[in-house]
Simulated assay, not measured.
Amino acid sequence: MDLQSFLLSIDSNAFLIAGDGNYLGLVSSDQYHCDSICNSYSQYGGGYSRFSIRNEFGQYGGQFGMYSPYNPFCNNPPKITYGNRVVLQVTKNEFFHSRNRVPIIDPNFLFGVLLSRGRYSKSVTNKTQFQPITSSGAYYNEFNTFDLDSLGNQFYDRAIHTQLQEYESWYNKGNALLESQQYEEALTAYGKAIQLAPNFFDAWYKHSVALFRLERYDAAVTSFDRTIAIDSNIPEIWLDRARTLYKLQSYENAIYSCKQATQIKLEYDEAWYFQGLILYELQQYEDAVLSFDRAIQLKPDLIEAWYLKGFALFTSKQYEKVITSFDRMIQLKPDIAEVWLLRGYALIEL
């Protein structure tokens, strides 16, 4: 197995660890995964992120970074771990001597291979331009010196066994922390679960919720997108994504998410109501009323829908309908002063 084939075989199942022990991301071609070193918007792949080897001004990236693979004199470069074992050292220091004869890989070659598989394909570096070297400095062409075909299977099976034991524990810990409103700690726990099980849907969802609670809305949207990439048929996820986009005032995208939710679950009153709320914000009052009507058909005592429907009708000067809507609102909750006041104005207009 050559180096390129090996990298592709461990894609999204290996981790990049800094020389000082810090986690530097998932070795993955996925440009949307929040931990991927190829995600240019994540903390592990961004050009200005602290833990990204693509940050040319940080200690983990750039020509002068203390632990940077791009520092040609770095003696403590990052390593790629797979199945609880270090399988590669990432560095441009061709004279680096690994204690355990771990092969060296050029960081540009690493990104070339991963990005060639990514959604936005780039031409991969020609593998003849770089050859891994042994700790003695002798070059070799093939990567089968360590019998990585069998090594990969052996350690992958062992890693899966470990993951099955650990990732649910991290997930359950995250749930407890989320319940107690310790959102940063919960985020860390869900991140650990995701590291062990990259397609763990529930962990990704709760990871997204924790980010939302921390008001890190941009990151939350990215996390929700990763959740949806695993399973796009859960309407609640689409609605939560819409709520997050609403916080970012990205209204059109939020409406799209609401529509996705109602396509999956036509009788989803919350999604219809929230779509109406966004349309109301956009002053698209007629469409807002239609959405509120759908929500009310599904849940006749949905006070919020009756309330905003009355306001939308008043703005549209449909005063008779305003009175009808507010009369129903008053039956449900008679102690809202604004409703009585606006009802009075509607009667005056009539």
Score class of each variant (00 low, 15 high):
245 L>K: 13
199 N>H: 09
26 L>Q: 11
122 K>F: 03
223 S>H: 02
260 Q>G: 00
235 P>W: 01
105 I>P: 09
244 T>D: 07
107 P>G: 03
203 A>N: 04
18 A>I: 13
203 A>R: 10
299 K>C: 05
30 D>R: 15
58 G>V: 00
37 I>S: 15
115 L>G: 04
77 P>G: 12
309 K>A: 09
216 R>M: 14
195 Q>S: 05
250 S>H: 06
335 D>S: 10
8 L>Y: 04
48 Y>D: 14
249 Q>R: 11
196 L>C: 07
197 A>H: 07
221 V>N: 09
126 N>W: 03
320 E>L: 09
37 I>R: 12
305 A>E: 08
24 L>E: 07
82 Y>G: 11
305 A>N: 05
178 L>W: 10
272 W>A: 13
318 Q>P: 00
63 Q>N: 05
29 S>M: 05
247 K>C: 07
95 F>P: 01
236 E>Y: 04
162 T>I: 11
193 A>C: 06
26 L>D: 04
141 N>T: 10
258 C>L: 08
2 D>A: 06
275 Q>H: 10
60 Y>D: 03
1 M>F: 14
135 S>F: 06
33 H>P: 13
161 H>W: 00
94 E>Q: 08
89 Q>H: 13
40 S>N: 12
346 A>K: 02
260 Q>V: 02
300 P>L: 09
101 R>P: 01
48 Y>F: 12
220 A>D: 07
209 V>D: 09
306 W>H: 15
134 T>C: 11
62 G>H: 07
316 S>C: 05
193 A>E: 01
251 Y>D: 04
85 R>G: 01
102 V>Y: 07
285 Y>V: 03
206 K>V: 13
65 G>I: 02
14 A>P: 13
3 L>M: 14
290 L>R: 11
129 Q>V: 05
110 L>G: 06
59 Q>V: 10
78 P>K: 05
100 N>A: 06
147 D>Q: 15
326 F>S: 01
162 T>S: 12
297 Q>F: 05
266 L>T: 14
346 A>C: 08
262 T>R: 04
159 A>Q: 13
234 I>Q: 14
59 Q>C: 00
114 L>S: 03
66 M>A: 12
345 Y>A: 13
309 K>C: 11
162 T>F: 04
121 S>G: 00
322 V>I: 01
110 L>A: 09
46 G>H: 09
221 V>C: 11
270 E>I: 15
44 Y>S: 12
3 L>A: 12
126 N>S: 08
44 Y>C: 13
262 T>E: 07
191 G>I: 08
317 K>Y: 01
196 L>W: 01
30 D>L: 11
108 N>I: 05
264 I>N: 04
